[in-house]
Amino acid sequence: MSSPRSDRPVNPLPPVVVALFLVIIGIEAVFNLGARGLIGGPEAVGWRQGAIQDYGFNSDIFGWMVQNNVWPMTHVKRFVTYLFLHGSFTHALFAGVMLLALGKFVGEVFAQWAVLVLFVTSAVVGAVVFGLAMPEQQRWLIGAFPGVYGLIGGFTYLMWLKLGQMGAQQFRAFSLIGVLMGLQLVFGLIFGANRMWLADVAGFAAGFILSFFLAPGGWARIRAKIRHR
């Protein structure tokens, strides 16, 4: 007899991925309803900008914390909270769809806690790199894409392993990130440079490296290689 899991035509989404998606879309829905005057009254029109000011990641604030070695929780929280703020419904929708797609693939292999750690840690690394770069024309970082790119790093790691097991060329695992970076370049040339790609690339790199430790058996595999050497 086959197991109930194998009888399902589509594997369910990992709960942690669904939860992250619902938070992103829920916050965006509140902003949209407020901007349309459906909830919150006249002041609701400025909810999005107010939230970005209070919870978005800002390179100037980060630079001030680094320079003075002062890390108040009011600003430290920005390393994570910026993930759930977006500039528009389209921005949030694209991020949410990619989160579901990549989260489903990675979540079928990684543990639930590992998916969350991968998403959040990649976003933190992305924010740090963005803050250190200190873009002159763009000091605010918002959106889930650095965390999503961390999941792309996890996806790339899994493809890298699979290609290695098949004896195929493992550099093919980086095709997805190559295409996405190419699109970033094209959009930048057409619509103007957007420095958020710094956080995306850093998030991807962090996600790929973290996957060596977070994937099932990853740490044991690394120790085995060290002992073999």
Rank of each mutant, 00 (worst) to 15 (best):
L83W: 05
I27C: 01
A133F: 10
A29W: 15
L33G: 00
V148K: 10
A29F: 12
S122Y: 05
A205L: 14
G192K: 07
P14I: 05
V30N: 02
F191T: 13
A95G: 07
G26L: 01
V97F: 12
H75G: 00
Y82G: 10
V129K: 07
G178W: 04
W219D: 14
W64H: 14
A173D: 06
M196Y: 14
V106Y: 00
P9N: 01
G56E: 04
L13C: 04
L141S: 07
V23Q: 02
R139S: 08
V117T: 12
P14C: 04
T90K: 09
V201R: 08
S88R: 02
I222R: 12
H91Q: 01
R78C: 05
K104E: 05
A51V: 07
F84T: 14
A173F: 11
S175P: 01
A133S: 12
Q53A: 15
R229G: 15
A144V: 12
I222M: 12
W140T: 06
R195V: 13
T156G: 12
L83C: 07
A168I: 09
D54I: 03
I24W: 06
E28M: 09
M134L: 11
G103R: 08
L198N: 06
N194G: 04
G96F: 12
S6Y: 02
I177Q: 06
G41D: 02
V117R: 09
W219F: 15
S3I: 02
Q137F: 13
G56H: 01
P4I: 11
W219E: 15
R195I: 07
V106G: 04
F187C: 01
I226R: 10
R195L: 08
P9G: 00
G150I: 01
G143A: 04
P72A: 06
L20I: 09
W113Y: 13
G56Q: 01
D200F: 03
T90N: 14
D7R: 15
M134V: 04
G192T: 04
E28D: 09
V30C: 02
R227Y: 05
R8Y: 01
Y82K: 04
V179W: 02
A101Q: 04
N68Q: 07
M73H: 03
L151I: 02
G50C: 05
G63I: 08
G34H: 06
L185P: 02
A193M: 11
A123P: 04
V201T: 09
V179F: 08
F89A: 15
I209H: 09
R172H: 14
F84Y: 11
I142W: 05
W140L: 10
F119Y: 07
L13W: 08
T81D: 01
Q138T: 10
A224V: 13
R48L: 02
G96H: 13
T121K: 06
P15S: 05
L99R: 06
F208K: 09
V66W: 13
N58Q: 13
Q138S: 10
F31H: 10
A35W: 06
A127G: 11
G34A: 05
W160M: 03
G150R: 04
M134H: 04
Q170N: 03
V17P: 03
A224N: 15
V16N: 11
A95M: 08
I209P: 05
V186A: 11
L151Y: 05
R48P: 05
Q112I: 00
R48W: 11
G87T: 08
F204T: 00
Q112N: 10
E28A: 08
K225I: 12
